[in-house]
């Protein structure tokens, strides 16, 4: 079980509601996919005609599935375009590159009870949570806040569990978040995934109700796992000008130019690739440099860090 990218093939496309598309993806070589956990996401490389998007989606397939992965994609009107590409262009049989599953929203398994609050399409990570809790028997409750019309769209995905409740914006159907949060026993963990405003409201209500921060978890979507804006770099000793693309690291670009740069972990921890920075301002993403070293601005770790603005000049 070693690898970093996989070639997938679209096996099925189903529009489950206006603006909601379900995809079933299998390994293009017919082999098995790596298993993934509750709360896992996968980053997909979406090759449009003019540009490439890298979008991450929660897996809604059952945890541990190795025959196929499933995702539900909401078409975002003002998105960067990746969700529109999936809705308009992607067809059964198309192939696309994906990363191995990552997980920034795993359930906390020491919890005595799991309380989940979903807003709209924010139910996607909780579909795999429900499957896991169904298997392990862990106590749980899911509150889905959505438009009344969406209830029938989501209900088939949630089974008939008594632990699931729907709420919508009508008298008698709204979720009383403060009351819900005030009545939870010690050992409960709270998970929230929805629109930013709802996430903020739930987090604030939890703080008011005295929840320790360690027991409150919010899915942060859209945070880049790698890449960023494209930028330029100049290697003084090699005399090479580089264009660092948005989807590659500075180290990748240095290596692509044929310059040997020492490196080890490629993850910003070991410090082997630390390089003197002669000009330019770095956006430090490593775990190695001290606060003082960052403030001095004379060192950069090209395996993870990028340019904050303009061009970087490296002593390499």
């Amino acid at each position: 079980m070693i690898g970093d990218t996989l070639l997938l093939q679209v096996a099925a496309v189903t529009d489950i509601a206006p603006g909601l598309r379900h995809l079933r993806l299998v390994a293009a070589d017919g082999g098995k996919l790596p298993p993934a956990a509750a709360g896992a996401h996968v980053q997909f490389v979406l090759e449009g005609a003019a540009r490439t998007w890298r979008n991450a989606y929660s897996l809604v397939s059952r945890p541990g599935a190795r025959d196929a992965w499933e995702i539900i994609v909401r078409r975002v009107p003002a998105s960067r375009g990746g969700s529109a590409f999936i809705h308009e262009q992607l067809e059964v049989g198309d192939r696309l590159l994906a990363g191995w599953p990552g997980n920034l929203f795993a359930p906390v398994r020491i919890a005595r009870h799991h309380l989940m609050i979903a807003g709209g399409i924010g139910i996607t990570p909780f579909l795999s949570y429900l499957a896991e809790f169904g298997f392990t028997g862990a106590g749980h409750a899911l509150h889905v806040c959505c438009r009344e019309s969406e209830k029938d769209v989501f209900a088939p995905w949630l089974g008939s569990s008594p632990a699931v409740a729907f709420h919508w914006d009508a008298d008698g159907h709204r979720l009383d978040i403060p009351a819900l949060l005030a009545s939870q026993p010690a050992g409960t963990h709270l998970y929230v995934c929805g629109p930013a405003a709802m996430n903020d409201e739930v987090m604030a209500a939890a703080a008011v109700a005295g929840w320790p921060a360690s027991h409150v978890h919010c899915e942060h979507f859209g945070s880049a796992l790698f890449g960023g804006e494209a930028f330029r770099a100049f290697l003084v000793r090699s005399g090479i000008e580089l264009e660092v693309a948005e989807d590659e690291s500075l180290l990748d670009a240095i290596e692509r130019a044929g310059v040997a740069a020492p490196c080890l972990c490629r993850g910003g921890a070991c410090g082997v690739c630390v390089t003197p920075l002669l000009e330019g301002e770095a956006e430090h993403r490593d775990h190695f440099l001290s606060a003082d070293e960052r403030a001095a601005g004379r060192l950069i770790m090209p395996c993870v860090s990028r340019a904050r603005a303009g061009r970087l000049v490296l002593d390499l």
């Binding site: 005030a182 939870q184 026993p185 409960t188 109700a209 005295g210 929840w211 320790p212």
Partner: peptide
Amino acid sequence: RGYGIGDR
């Protein structure tokens, strides 16, 4: 009655 998540 047990203890609540807001208790210290």
